[in-house]
Simulated assay, not measured.
Amino acid sequence: MANLTRGIDHIGITVPDIEEATTFFKKAFHAKIAYDNKKLGDEPQQGEAVEKTLGLKNGAKVIHIRILSFDNGSNIELFHFKDTEQREPVIASDFGVQHVAFYVDDIQQSADAFVEAGGELLTEPGELLGDVENESGEFVYGRAPWGMLIELISYNPNQLNYPEDSEAKRFTP
């Protein structure tokens, strides 16, 4: 049977303010606006059909949606909701999507840009952890201004020590 999956098209992220999140992603990762699916000020997406389609709580309204594009990687779809209870961003031990990682060429320069854009690093960049990546590169975790966990990672794909039973090599932009 043929593989019908090409790759990840986008990652959806709920933010408190799409303009502020866009500014952050532009400054930190050179994101570009592809388009707005729903402009702020347009009639909100709401009602039973939207709640069912997106798995929302009753009364939630989608008031702004924007697609951000990156030169070499998946897109990010930003969402801003109204009239629904918001929870704190997840931490790494929570179920579900817990972080997004950006492959970068220079970890320190990228970490500096992340902080200058309004992010907060959890530590300084350090050596990758794990047997496969051992001594192949560096990484650091940080929080975006709204609390979302983001990883910066840089490694030499030719230095990864894959186990014998590996079914594939890791995708590297």
Rank of each mutant, 00 (worst) to 15 (best):
A168R: 10
E77W: 05
A117H: 10
Y35R: 11
T5Q: 07
P145K: 05
F95D: 12
Y35C: 07
G41R: 06
A2L: 11
R143I: 07
E19N: 13
G41T: 06
E138P: 04
G147P: 04
P16F: 01
F70H: 04
G137E: 10
K32E: 14
D165G: 03
I13R: 01
P157S: 06
G59D: 04
G142M: 09
A49R: 14
I76H: 05
F171R: 09
T84Q: 05
T23Y: 02
N72Q: 13
I107L: 06
A28G: 04
V140T: 08
G126R: 15
E164V: 13
T14R: 04
G12I: 00
E88G: 03
W146C: 06
F24M: 00
G147Q: 09
F24N: 00
G73H: 11
G7I: 00
R87L: 13
G55S: 07
A2H: 09
G55T: 05
P145G: 12
Q45L: 15
K169R: 15
P125I: 13
L122W: 02
I11N: 01
E120Q: 15
K61D: 03
A34Y: 05
I150M: 06
G119C: 01
I107E: 02
N58Q: 15
M1F: 09
P125M: 12
K169T: 14
S74G: 09
K38L: 15
D71S: 10
D105I: 08
V90W: 02
G147S: 05
T123S: 14
Q45M: 13
R87K: 14
R143C: 04
T5N: 07
S136D: 07
H10N: 08
T123A: 06
R170C: 11
A111V: 01
P157K: 06
I13E: 00
P145S: 10
S166R: 11
D165C: 11
N156V: 01
T84P: 02
E51H: 12
P145D: 05
A49P: 00
Y141P: 09
E127K: 15
K38C: 03
V62L: 15
E120T: 15
L78F: 02
I8K: 00
A21P: 02
E135K: 14
Y103Q: 15
I65H: 02
H30N: 15
F81D: 01
Q108I: 11
T172L: 10
D83G: 01
A34V: 06
V115S: 09
D9Y: 08
A31F: 00
K52D: 10
L160T: 08
P163H: 08
G96C: 09
F139R: 14
N75M: 13
P157I: 09
G118D: 03
I33L: 07
Q86H: 06
E133A: 14
Q109C: 03
A49G: 06
G118W: 07
E19W: 00
E85F: 04
I153K: 10
F95Q: 14
Q86N: 10
A144C: 12
A111T: 04
A60K: 03
T123N: 15
F171G: 02
S110K: 03
P173W: 07
Y155T: 02
L128S: 08
D94R: 10
D105M: 12
T123F: 09
L122Q: 10
